[in-house]
Design a protein around this nucleic acid. Structure first.
Lengths: 335, 335
DNA sequence: TTGAAAGCGCTACCAC
DNA sequence: GTGGTAGCGCTTTCAA
């Protein structure tokens, strides 16, 4: 900048003002300075500017993968979410700083906040980090989290109604005549835990008709879920066996689609022998074979809400959490 | 930091050294300062540090979407790529700054470089920006691009062998007895142009057997590709009509899957009436109905190469472009 | 082994 | 309208 100032024969202050489009500087001089800057390929140094202004024009997007060491950001649900969040942030004229968090790492959120890398933080998925979020939210306001809404939670979340969504999925299976419905997933993750509650509610309500609830723990990656399902089928025996089951509610679509693969690989048919329903409605769900019944989360709308709420918080507003409806989409895998 | 210094009764210099783990500071004092910093939740301000050190420990990932105003970062191929790139960058201890570029915007790359936001830049897809990349690459070394390898190109690319990949796909269709193979895509985008070359080569070689090459321009989004295919089917007429076709080579999987939808919506069958092959092998391709034949790009390997090459360039090395094989994967959509 | 001081590149205050 | 100057928070000489 001092170079430009020297060449233009003015002070750095004037260059700074001209480049910022200040009306304080004479119009002719302003245009001259701008022309010169463009010509010489001069660009304002963001780091210096950020330091001076104490803001960065960028948002951190953090993705904790604590529950699942092997899970990658390449997971279909996450990538859809990241894409839409990025779209919205860009649209607002901000940059996006993407951060994968791989616990055990107790300190990541205070670190991220304290580093002042960004003007606000979006966390996608609570993973195992509820306590960390809770601790940080008291002091740091511009924070919004995608995930389940837990009791007595002081941070702002955006998410679908996991309990109601899961419940409608399981009630649909029961109405379709299924009697032994397996829950495939890990209820320790908050969102999954809420979906498990919905699953249990549906079972309670239809206690006369169905066999008791049964959880098959499965992590969030395709491979581990496949393996969990495969092992369970081996233990349960085929149709007619004592442990036989006729439906699976997968805690996510990735899990459900893996279950479908494991079930068909075992020589059973979907939905003939086993009906399967997932959760998320990732793009792949409708393209799957058979098309997967699922509980739809409107990811794009969720992403927009995350960003919009964050901007309101950045302006000092204290926004409440938002819960979106979760709509059952019935396709062939449970028809 | 000056706070910590005051409390510890030392100078800021010493705190800085202690936090950096310098051996210059007495071990006992160092541990004391570190304890104090942790206790008070002190974190080094990244912006100030970056300004002082003239580096940012982060990589910009820019995604130009010039060819397609409506294309979103939520595109399946892009999100897979972003996810894997993010994984690798994180693994290297760097941050990732994600930037969606929506031309017309001639200045984005010089801007990004000049802003000094990051220590290196990965551009995913050349889009319409070949000239921009070419211009910047001469002066700015830490730049790597995912995309097609063009003649006399001075920037470093990573990508698959688009010509050979496309050619093998089309030859497969010809061997399967298809005679009127439509190319669905926009050859103006470099990678797609190379795939079109492969398509043409296959046609030349089998000139006796097939009808001349035919391009149906289609952009890269699912909706526009669907619409283009729908319109084309309307104009071409059904099987037996003069304009009838019996195969489609989609320039990407998203395009090919949209074509499948349009074809089946028109009452034709895949692969019975029309065989379809795509390019990319996105996760969805194998889950589609019918499973989509495609040319596989190893996205994870590509992402790792992008990042690894970039780091070598950041250290001053002048790396050559890398071309990976593109392997035909035959599934039911063309079987 | 420690501290004082300079300076990374910018913006905004204050004076003219 | 314009320029001088201070200072954002850090690291790293240089001197002690």
């Amino acid at each position: 900048m001092s170079d430009i100032a020297r060449i233009a024969g003015v002070s750095a202050s004037t260059v700074s003002r001209a480049l910022a489009g200040s009306t304080l500087v004479a119009a002719a001089k302003r245009d001259e300075i701008r022309r010169l800057a463009r010509e010489r390929g001069y660009v304002i140094n963001t780091t210096a500017r950020n330091l001076r202004l104490q803001r960065t024009q960028s948002i951190s997007v953090a993705i904790p993968l604590g529950h699942e060491a092997g899970q990658s950001l390449a997971d279909p649900f996450l990538t859809e979410m990241i894409g839409h969040v990025a779209d919205r942030i860009t649209q607002r004229g901000y940059g996006m700083f993407l951060q994968k968090i791989v616990p055990p790492m107790d300190d990541w959120l205070p670190q991220l906040i304290g580093s002042h890398r960004s003007d606000g933080i979006i966390v996608i998925g609570q993973s195992t980090e509820h306590a960390v979020l809770e601790a940080a939210a008291e002091a740091y306001r511009p924070l919004v989290v995608w995930g389940g809404r837990l009791a007595r939670q002081s941070y702002c979340t955006v998410g679908t109604d996991n309990v109601a969504g899961a419940r409608s999925a399981v009630e649909h299976l029961i109405q379709a005549g299924r009697r032994r419905i397996v829950f495939l997933g890990d209820p320790a993750v908050p969102e999954i835990g809420l979906r498990y509650q919905g699953y249990l509610l549906a079972h309670e309500r239809a206690a006369q008709q169905v066999v008791p609830a049964q959880v098959v723990p499965a992590h969030l990656t395709a491979d581990t879920a496949y393996e969990a399902m495969r092992a369970f089928i081996g233990a349960a025996g085929g149709p007619g066996a004592a442990g036989a089951f006729d439906a699976v509610f997968g805690a996510t679509d990735v899990i459900a689609l893996s279950a479908v693969r494991a079930i068909t690989a075992a020589g059973l048919s979907v939905p003939g022998d086993v009906a399967v329903v997932g959760y998320d409605d990732i793009v792949m769900a409708s393209h799957a074979n058979p098309p997967l019944s699922t509980v739809r989360q409107d990811v794009q709308r969720g992403a927009h809400m995350l960003v919009d709420l964050l901007f309101r918080r950045m302006e000092g507003e204290d926004t409440p959490s938002a819960t979106m409806p979760a709509d059952l989409v019935i396709r062939e895998s449970s028809a």
